[in-house]
Design a protein around this nucleic acid. Structure first.
Length: 293
DNA sequence: CGTGTTTGACCTGCGC
DNA sequence: GCGCAGGTCAAACACG
């Protein structure tokens, strides 16, 4: 986490000019083209560096807001647990959406659900976390791609939210009993709220696939493959342990993991970035060949 | 034809 | 006990 916590700690500059600037260009006809290419790459390098710096800055802001929110939640935790049907808001259960999306507290039904779950978790230690995904408002699908494969087993329209709630089970492994509920935020239709129950007892399948860049799903649904990716905004882990009064905590490793995956995914999907990277690698190889001679 | 999705029916828990 | 709401099941359907 800390390696991403400050832009000053991240070397955002990609030295794409190595090997290229030292190239000795013999033919005049190609000189102009190469210089243009070099200038273009330098511009891209600068642009990428700025984007990365901006990304790190934004991450720092989000992290700060998250920490402040957790501290606030812990302070408010002294209040006794409410009953399921209580209309009053429980701050410990509401979740803040940060990062490009205005603050969005959970719906009443979500609060009800979480209160119920809290009681259930006094018996069954189940990890419950909530993830917010920013999507296109026009996108009516309830599909979020989080690296795992899910099988939809139900959909229901709930009372306080006109948007239907979709129910998913983890399809990666038969023994994995993780469930996921996805519903649009009642306040911001462009935000998908995914509630995860339980923990996966297997590795994330996309970790293997994404490394190859092919991201082939192993029998994943057609919808998951075809639908556009929802952009994860923030993960807020609402894990409740046996103690009902225990505060909601932020699962920083998960946030970190998600953020890193998202950054890597964004970069690898950018053709400009891959082209610049290829050019940099080529340049370095060329330089190495020159020095070997 | 196999796999995943849809959707109405059914189950369960809670409040009154 | 009844009604309501959320969660789950499973047959029907769609798709490659």
């Amino acid at each position: 986490m800390d390696q991403y916590s400050s832009s000053s700690l991240v070397d955002t500059s990609l030295d794409l000019t190595i090997g290229v600037t030292r190239m000795r260009v013999e033919e005049d006809s190609t000189t102009t083209a190469l210089v243009d290419e070099l200038n273009r790459m330098n511009a891209e390098n600068k642009k990428l560096s700025e984007m990365l710096t901006l990304m790190c800055d934004k991450y720092n802001v989000l992290r700060k807001q998250l920490i402040e929110y957790v501290n606030k939640s812990e302070r408010d935790q002294v209040s006794p647990p409410k009953k399921r049907k209580s209309p009053a808001r429980d701050d410990a259960n509401s979740s803040a959406v940060v990062g490009g999306v205005s603050e969005s507290s959970s719906t009443d039904q979500d609060d009800q659900y979480l209160c119920k779950k809290q009681r259930e978790e006094t018996v069954v230690k189940e990890k419950v976390s909530r993830v917010y995904y920013k999507t296109e408002a026009s996108d009516t699908t309830l599909v979020v791609k989080d690296g795992y494969q899910w099988r939809k087993y139900g959909q229901k329209v709930t009372r306080d939210n006109p948007s239907p709630r979709a129910y998913f089970k983890c399809a990666c492994a038969p023994s994995c009993s993780v469930k996921k509920k996805v519903q649009r935020s009642v306040e911001d239709q462009s935000v998908l709220v995914a509630t995860y129950e339980g923990e996966h007892n297997h590795p994330m399948p996309s970790q293997i696939d994404s490394n190859s860049g092919l991201n082939r799903s192993l029998g994943g649904s057609a919808a998951n493959r075809s639908k556009s990716l929802a952009e994860p905004v923030t993960t807020i882990d609402l894990t409740e342990t046996k103690k009902v009064t225990s505060p909601s905590r932020i699962d920083f490793p998960e946030v970190q993991k998600l953020l890193v995956e998202q950054m890597a995914s964004s970069l690898t999907k950018d053709p400009n970035f891959t082209a610049a990277l290829a050019a940099a690698v080529t340049g370095r190889l060329y330089q190495q060949n020159q020095t070997d001679k």
